[in-house]
Design a protein around this nucleic acid. Structure first.
Lengths: 151, 151
DNA sequence: TTTGATTAGTGGCATATGCCACCTTTGCGG
DNA sequence: CCGCAAAGGTGGCATATGCCACTAATCAAA
């Protein structure tokens, strides 16, 4: 009896989610590798693609990520000429992002690879199961963790 | 009808998982904040705690993380005196990790906060749902993504 | 035993994410 | 019109993760 008695960290919702994330992330990254994009970058490009020259704040909100984190993540994509940012015409505080032709092409290229990863994954867990999992994860992402602290 | 026509990135298993991870991660991090530990550090300390002075490789495998990534992540914990590493007696290639008294105390302290986060989360999604989600995530973590590329 | 393959980690480099302090622009009142 | 609070980003700093090249210690085959 090793020590299975102790509650493994599979009991922690957060740890379990992170662990699965590392695993799945590496899989998608591997499949996307030929395009030179990471899974996160692919997702970011896609999000920009489906938006209408979205503002950084809008992207951050959609991806549920910190605005500054988005700024950092965007840098390599700008550096590589995939996207470009520009000030909003009406509100100069707002900075919008748009895909450049090269980014568009790269997205198309990566999309094919993404399909492979997506299909391979769903073939393993089952399309229904995958959909259920995504639904559950979306539900988590939509939760309102308002801290009681305060005001 | 905004542009819901385009397949949102909620269709990508990887993006969905990452997004939920960011959200949940911040929640656990916020609750654990008073202890000074991040959710990842808590999980790592816990993993070391339930092991018998585990080797780095064993920890990395359990957490499904890159060995070098584990090394990096371990540094702040060593610096703060929570854990210590030492060479295995029989195989000097192996480096084992053990909790220091201070780490033990910190873990106990953080565990209380963790319970709060865990309970608050499960109160929102339901204990059963949470268990199902963890099971699904563990299943993903256990998948064997063997590339066909190969050899 | 000598050598070559394997195993376990390290260090450097790059991206992913967050928080916080700060700077600009706006929006509002007064 | 002035001054101030709110909104939207930026930069710096710290942790989280990976990959790759390299080193040290073992192991196995000749």
């Amino acid at each position: 009896m090793t020590k299975a008695a102790l509650p493994g960290l599979s009991l922690c919702n957060n740890a379990t989610l992170r662990r699965a994330g590392r695993k799945l992330g590496r899989f998608y990254d591997d499949v996307l590798a030929p395009s030179g994009l990471k899974g996160t970058q692919y997702g970011l490009l896609y999000q920009i693609h489906i938006g209408s020259e979205p503002a950084m704040g809008a992207i951050a909100e959609a991806l549920i990520m910190d605005l500054s984190a988005l700024g950092h993540t965007l840098k390599p994509l700008i550096r590589d000429g995939y996207v470009e940012t520009f000030a909003d015409k009406d509100d100069r505080r707002v900075k919008r992002v748009r895909l450049m032709p090269q980014g568009r092409a790269k997205l198309d290229e990566a999309m094919k690879l993404w399909s492979v990863a997506q299909q391979r994954f769903e073939a393993m867990v089952g399309k229904d199961e995958a959909a259920k999992l995504r639904a559950a994860l979306d539900a988590v992402a939509a939760l309102d963790f308002d801290m009681p602290p305060a005001r």
